[in-house]
């Protein structure tokens, strides 16, 4: 999905922007941990784990699946 808005508090937003989760960037959920939370996302080519409560502050819209998403059998998903 494509990120549209970061609604977390300033420090968290800053943190997410630093790792490349900015408005307009693309994010794909790759996998869940055994207990369901946290989940791992592909952000700017790297795999980064976020807890659900932090990921819930990120709003975005789904985008048409890229060839890569189809290859992995997954699509960008929407939080919340």
């Amino acid at each position: 999905m494509e990120v549209r808005r970061l609604t977390g508090e300033a420090a968290m937003r800053r943190r997410l922007e630093d790792i490349g989760l900015t408005e307009g960037s693309r994010v794909t959920c790759l996998m869940k941990s055994p207990l369901g939370d946290p989940k791992a996302y592909r952000i700017q080519g790297a795999v980064i784990a976020l807890r659900d409560r932090d990921a819930a502050t990120v709003f975005g819209v789904p985008i048409t699946p890229s060839p890569h998403d189809v290859e992995n059998g997954r699509r960008g998903r929407r939080w919340r």
């Binding site: 943190r15 997410l16 790792i19 795999v47 980064i48 784990a49």
Partner: peptide, 11 residues
């Protein structure tokens, strides 16, 4: 409260 958390899973 638990704080926010980001963890990179390297290749």
């Amino acid at each position: 409260e638990p704080s926010s958390f980001t963890l990179e899973l390297p290749p």
